[in-house]
Write a protein that binds this DNA or RNA. Structure first.
Length: 1163
RNA sequence: GCGCACGUAGCUCAGUUGGUUAGAGCGCCACCCUGAUAAGGUGGAGGUCCGCGGUUCGAGUCCGCGCGUGCGCACCA
């Protein structure tokens, strides 16, 4: 038995009840248990950083991550979903520092590393709980209880194992390189991290004179090289000036107003002279030219003396014999261009990677130890050292101004301006600019795997496709060795121990391995700490500072000890290791890893290209495969070293808000803005920003509209890889557009099922399971679809077609297309099937088979749709399922335990679907024509003429003209496909067919056909089955398929044209039609009154109508039976007069009418 | 600077292998319908499909060059 449900449903509340239901009945767990042994569908959770609250963008990721596993589970796959949390790294440290009000490493050390990492660990726990709440509320089914956590010992040990593997294969090395250095944080950053922090800034840019020393070329004597730099602070560390040997340089002088040349001579690239002259607003004259090659070797005076004073004249021995000045020479460099600057480049090898390469190359020319040493006037803290006493202790960026001033004072500054460019800042401490700095650091030799990574990348199914060859492929092409180490605290410790005597190194793969090293000491540091504070998480023992205390006997030198290196590793490595580290592999979980690698499906936003997508691919490629040293995973039977087979790359989510024109007031919805500002506001879209508070928290969205509304919005509004607007209005709109529409159909069903006592499958004896057709057909009242009315067969055919379409699309990861398909189905069900079937549900004979068919059809459609939408809007689906299955014996307790419908219950009847679509179009056109002629649908019309482009479906349409008559409220309908007085025809070629055949003649053919009479051509076609046309002397024969007939309504008719038919109305009104119209109006007025008086659907009434117009009363009298049956009136009194005060006063056909309505008490 | 993507109605977006009348939803306005009723329908828009050039019988769709936006890269000296 079904109970009528209300239409004023509160979805958020309903969803929370469903959450409880899922939890208390372990539905998720059961959905997995049920599929055990099924084909696995492997999903990897890219671990969110447990730092900061989840925002709407994360909801998109989590919704997509939920959708496909749910779908696959219903399709019979076993999809294990293990949650994970990324817990290490700079973000966490920064967050804790903020909390402690500290910033620098010194302050952390002062605070105490032990206390600091304990705080880090607590901090991530706090955020993990927030994340879990949102995850659950969104309906993201994932096993949170078994989540992998990157700081846990087993995870860390997996990472250690992988690093030891790389170390043993010589792929993990310590190198001296110029790295992007976060001075305040005292650590290097990986290219991935650097990339996150680029920002446009205006830096001072200076053109500086480097006077040439001792040139033998007279035109260069006393001339200066002009170099350009945007980092004045690097000038004290200048070591070389670079030119390109093939570039033409000019020696210039300024030209005075009199046309004389005067003043200093200087050297710049010839092609830049004009541009530079404009910059300094002087006329320049080229006094001589010189090739770059001729400049190479010249000495110059650097702008600062700090090193030059003592080393300026030092020479070194060249390998080729002879000697050379070591530094402050002009050198050649390939990278020098004339794109900007002066064509002469200031080199400070300490602060630029290419500059450093030049130094190394120069050093190569000298006998060992005799070449130039690195000049670096800046300490690791980013402040000048005593080597540049004028600026000692000054932060480099603060030194730009005083340095520029000093240059000007000493006459070295040739020109100065602002230069706007992108410059990296620390991605977590966004006020701290990064600097390039020479540093010893640990690297992974990823460049050795570049080609392998590219090959693996080609195996990945990227959505959208262009990511693979485009963005991600390009990123791999420009691969550089992974700068792995971080001189920080909260991270996976680098598992490398160094011999204090020989400097030789050793890597370990687990804590146990470490403990079993000979002469191991320092394990007590952890034990003591734990004894002092039993609350300490056991996992911390593999972290700093405890792990640093562990030492052991060196295998390399007797009596020497092995000490761990101080560094921790890049947290991106942690995340990329998750395919195996989530199982603790290889220390545990070998079978799980073998079975769960690679992933069938992952998804993250596009910002993970250089993040998780890369880290996974890089690590998997290096570790797993068939190369020596790699761990072969082919035993798993898949042989893929690439970690994921399909990846949906999501677009970024943008915020939408409304603000006052001055930007001072901000609102999240248009209504709020309108309420506060009237019409005086603007809509804005842009990045989500915590500071601007330009978006509503996910929790608020859940409370207001529900998780299903958000989910449907995210899935159904655009392809997932497009950037998406987090539009509150659009989220809200997804309720009436889809969710509520479906709910209304369901509500309609329950209202009448209750009235008629339709019990659905409740009368079926024997076990029920998923309520498929096979089960329902066991009901005595259930007839095979083939025996039911055409409308029933139609909706079942549409239903089956949609099932097939959705499956097809979802198998291709096309969630957007699947949603469109579902939307169309619900629209067809609501706006045609139910609309056209209403009278069947109202039929008074409760045992009429047609009525029962209607119930069964609608019931089954709802059951199937409920299953179809389950992965998309799981809450709504569950509510519907519970209501539709009620207390049925044995039926699956949740829709999420059902199989996804594949449409095998009914064939798709394409002809029927096409015919019904045509019928719907005719109805729609008819309404359009009525509108045009201002004839409301309640006014019956005599006749409608439908002219069809072809008569394929004419007979069928004629059989169904009752539907159109009712839809359009006309007495008669006439179909024709021939000549018609209100339609003109034009014949067009079928371009797609004829294009290849007639080619260039097509335009002329079109013209010729257009010029001929359409109806004559049609006649010819009907008579001969073909048309002959001569174009430029060529005979062209056209058959029926070669032409397309277009109809258009002639002017002067109440007609509307569609793609394949014209619908014209006979607008002549007879008195009889007018009287009928009056009755329809009256019925409408009474129904309205019934509702206002809050009648039940089944209440009978006594109806009295008073009116001064005999004409109206006559009309009502004439259609008395119609009026009473439509309004459930048990008696009807028609009175001439104006009625009394209990009456409702209304207007009917421009006359005043009073209606009295009394409910008949139930017997 | 280089790369990738995007640029279609007021807004948000669809647009299949190129086929000649470019669609949807929303918003706005008007009207209609209504025993699913805090739903539903019809219409108005009539859009230089960012611009220019090319390929083609035919271009929103393919190619080239620009312009704009977003994101990414880096030899930003």
């Amino acid at each position: 038995m079904f109970r009528a449900v209300k239409t004023d449903v509160k979805f958020p509340k309903q969803e929370e009840a469903i959450l409880d239901f899922w939890k208390s009945n372990r539905i998720y767990e059961k959905s997995l248990e049920q599929r055990e042994g099924g084909k696995p569908f492997v999903f990897f959770e890219g671990p969110p950083t447990a730092n900061g609250l989840p925002h709407p963008g994360h909801c998109l990721t989590r919704a997509i991550k939920d959708l496909f596993p749910r779908y696959r589970t219903m399709r019979g796959y076993w999809c294990n979903r293990k949650a994970g949390w990324d817990t290490h790294g700079l973000p966490v440290e920064v967050e804790v520092c903020k909390e402690l009000g500290i910033h620098s490493k010194e302050e952390i050390e002062q605070f105490g590393v032990e206390k600091f990492i304990a705080k880090c660990q607590q901090s991530v726990w706090r955020y993990m709980q927030e994340w879990e709440r949102v995850t659950e509320r969104l309906g993201f089914w994932i096993d949170l209880s078994q989540a992998y956590v990157t700081y846990q010992q087993s995870y860390v040990e997996s990472v250690w194992w992988s690093l030891k593997n790389l170390f043993d294969r010589g792929l993990l090395y310590r190198g001296h390189k110029i790295v992007w250095w976060w001075a305040q944080g005292g650590t290097a950053l990986s290219s991935g991290e650097v990339g996150q922090g680029y920002r446009e800034v205006a830096d001072p840019s200076v053109y500086v004179r480097f006077p040439i020393l001792g040139s033998v070329n007279p035109s260069l004597a006393n001339a200066s090289l002009i170099v350009w730099t945007t980092t004045p602070w690097t000038l004290p560390s200048n070591q070389f000036a670079a030119v390109h040997r093939d570039i033409e340089y000019s020696v210039c002088q300024e030209e005075t107003a009199e046309g004389e040349v005067a003043g200093e001579r200087f050297v710049v690239a010839a092609s830049l002279v004009e541009m530079l002259a404009e910059k300094i607003k002087r006329k320049l004259r080229v006094v001589s030219s010189v090739k770059g090659a001729e400049l190479v070797g010249l000495r110059y005076q650097p702008p600062f003396d700090y090193y030059h004073q003592t080393r300026g004249s030092q020479v070194g021995s060249l390998k080729t014999g002879g000697e050379s000045i070591r530094e402050w020479r002009v050198v050649h460099a390939d990278f020098v261009t004339v794109d900007s600057g002066t064509g002469i480049v200031h080199l400070a090898p300490a602060f630029g990677e290419v500059d450093y390469d030049v130094l190394v190359a120069e050093r190569e020319r000298f006998v060992d130890g005799s070449g130039p040493a690195l000049i670096c006037a800046v300490g690791p803290d980013g402040k000048f050292t005593e080597e540049a006493p004028d600026y000692q202790g000054v932060w480099v960026k603060d030194a730009d101004k005083p340095i520029t001033r000093a240059l000007r004072e000493r006459g070295k500054l040739w020109h100065q301006e602002q230069y706007v460019h992108d410059y990296p800042f620390c991605w977590r401490a966004s006020e701290d600019p990064l600097i390039q700095y020479p540093r010893e650091s640990w690297f992974i030799r990823t460049t050795a795997f570049r080609d392998a990574m590219l090959e693996n990348n080609r195996q990945i199914g990227w959505l959208p496709e262009h990511i693979g060859s485009g963005r991600f492929g390009n990123f791999l092409e420009s691969n550089v060795d992974w700068a792995l180490s971080r001189e920080r605290y909260w991270g996976t410790p680098l598992p490398v121990w160094v011999c204090e005597s020989t400097g030789k190194k050793d890597a370990i793969a687990s804590y146990d391995e470490l403990c079993s090293k000979p002469g191991v000491q320092g394990l007590d540091v952890w034990l003591d700490a734990k004894a002092k504070n039993p609350e300490l998480a056991e996992d911390l023992k593999v972290h700093k500072p405890y792990i640093d205390a562990v030492t052991y006997d060196s295998p390399f030198a007797k009596g020497a000890r092995m000490h761990r290196v101080p560094e921790v590793i890049d947290c991106w490595y942690d995340s990329g290791a998750m395919p195996f580290a989530q199982w603790g592999y290889p220390h545990s979980g070998k079978e799980l890893f073998a079975a769960q690698f690679p992933a069938d499906f992952i998804s993250e936003a596009i910002d993970q290209t250089r993040g998780w997508f890369y880290s996974q691919l890089a690590i998997s490629t290096m570790l797993f495969g068939d190369k020596p040293g790699q761990t072969s995973v082919s035993s798993a039977g898949n042989g893929y070293p690439h970690p994921f087979k399909n990846c949906i790359v999501l677009g970024l989510m943008l915020a939408e808000w409304y603000e006052s024109k001055d930007g001072k007031q901000r609102f999240l919805t248009e209504e709020d803005a309108r309420a506060a500002l009237g019409g005086d506001f603007v809509q804005k879209t842009g990045k989500m920003s915590k500071q601007l508070r330009n978006y509503r928290s996910p929790q608020e969205i859940f409370d207001r509209y529900g998780a299903d509304a958000l989910r449907w919005y995210l899935f159904a509004n655009q392809a997932p890889w497009n950037s998406i607007l987090y539009s509150e209005r659009a989220i809200r709109d997804s309720i009436p557009e889809f969710i509520l529409r479906l709910w209304n159909v369901f509500s309609f069903f329950t209202i009448y099922a209750e009235i008629d006592g339709f019990v659905g499958p409740a009368d079926i004896s024997g076990p029920l399971d998923q309520l498929g057709s096979d089960e329902l057909s066991r009901s005595k009242t259930y007839r095979p679809v083939a025996q039911r009315s055409e409308l029933d067969r139609w909706i079942m055919s549409e239903l089956a077609a949609t099932c097939r379409d959705v499956v097809d699309r979802m198998d291709r990861y096309d969630s957007y297309g699947a949603c469109q398909s579902l939307h169309g189905l619900v629209d067809a069900l609501s706006n045609w099937y139910v609309r056209r079937s209403r009278s069947r549900y109202w039929a008074s004979d409760k045992s009429s088979q047609d009525k029962i068919d209607a119930y069964w059809t609608l019931y089954e459609a709802l059951v199937v749709i409920t299953k179809l939408i389950a992965p998309f809007t799981p809450f709504l689906a569950e509510t519907l399922w519970q209501n539709l299955t009620g207390s049925l014996e044995g039926v699956r307790e949740s829709v999420h335990l059902c199989d996804f419908p594949t449409g095998d219950f009914a064939p798709t009847d394409a002809t029927l679907n096409a015919r019904m679509a045509l019928l719907r179009e005719i109805a729609s056109l008819g309404r359009s024509a009525r509108m045009e002629s201002k004839l409301k649908v309640r006014q019956p019309l005599g006749r409608v003429e439908v002219t069809l482009a072809n008569d394929t479906h004419a007979a069928w349409l004629t059989e169904h003209d009752d539907i159109v008559r009712e839809e359009l409220n006309v007495k008669e309908i006439h179909y024709t496909s021939g000549a018609s007085p209100f339609v003109s025809y034009s014949v067009q070629p079928n371009f797609r067919r004829l294009g290849p055949r007639v080619g260039a003649l097509l335009p002329k053919l079109k013209q010729s056909l257009g010029a001929l009479s359409g109806s004559q051509l049609m006649e010819e076609m009907t008579r001969n089955g073909k048309i002959l046309i001569s174009i430029d002397g060529k005979e062209i024969e056209l058959d029926g398929e070669d032409i397309q007939v277009r109809l258009s309504a002639k002017d002067g008719w109440a007609a509307a044209q569609g793609s394949s038919c014209v619908v014209a109305l006979n607008t002549a009104l007879t008195p009889s039609l007018i009287r009928e119209g009056i009755v329809k109006d009256a019925i409408r007025l009474v129904q309205d009154l019934r509702k206002r008086r809050q009648c039940n659907f089944t209440d009978r009434i006594v109806l009295t109508v008073y009116c001064e117009s005999q004409q109206i009363l006559d009309a009502l009298q004439e259609h008395r039976d119609f009026l009473t049956s439509e309004t459930l009136a048990s008696s009807l009194h028609l009175q001439l007069g104006s009625g009394d005060t209990t009456c409702e006063l209304v207007e009917l056909a421009d006359e005043k009418v009073a209606i009295d309505l009394k409910i008949v008490p139930e017997a």
